[in-house]
Design a protein around this nucleic acid. Sequence first.
DNA 1: TTATCATATGAACGGTTGCTCATATGTTCA
DNA 2: TGAACATATGAGCAACCGTTCATATGATAA
Lengths: 109, 109
Amino acid sequence: MAHDHAALLKHIKADMPSDELLQDLGDLFKIFGDTTRIKIMYALYEDEMCVCAIADLLGMTQSAISHQLKVLKAANLVESRREGKTIFYRLADEHVKSIIAQGYDHITE
Amino acid sequence: MAHDHAALLKHIKADMPSDELLQDLGDLFKIFGDTTRIKIMYALYEDEMCVCAIADLLGMTQSAISHQLKVLKAANLVESRREGKTIFYRLADEHVKSIIAQGYDHITE
DNA sequence: TTATCATATGAACGGTTGCTCATATGTTCA
DNA sequence: TGAACATATGAGCAACCGTTCATATGATAA
């Protein structure tokens, strides 16, 4: 075992969020932790876009994009609307932008 | 192929960051995308802490914590200082907190 | 130096993940 | 209804990732 620091730990532990919330936080960032998904979110930064336009933009398969959009949607990071055969995706809320912006700031310094 | 949207894509593409930066962004968030690393960063939220205290706090192996601290340090998310046999880690800057805080906001709503 | 403590590190293993391929679903138009 | 288009989805595979285990490094004290 290690040296003693029980007193310190007791204090820190009390201030930590629940395990469940920490897990959710990790799961959320995991979704931002893929270049393809980051690119998709950037593509939707200003305006909605249909699936095939995103696929075209990123030079990737429609299937690959659809799979990732499903992941993003399940995490409430994007929303969609149908217009005929086409389905348009958009960012779900401003949090997506601010999370990306914070990461951007850390990188570009 | 899909329906035509060349004009749209040209505009969007011009506004996208470089592939390299998008890759870096993904890599950054990937580091936040693991519960163990999130817990470590939360442990260091208020004050520095030695490796074995973190291991004790999280109920994990010293080896596992060291491996993750190495990842965090390589990404400039934590820094360390030595004091005798002990090595103390701390958050590298305020960005770490603000990135986590943004994620937290998205979760707790 | 030798023993002990604190931390770091390399290899290996199991689980996860993102893409591809084939196919299914859903919509429009003739 | 049938054909074409846009998107969704399941299975399978290769690559990646986090932990464990064994061991190495570095520092202190006797």
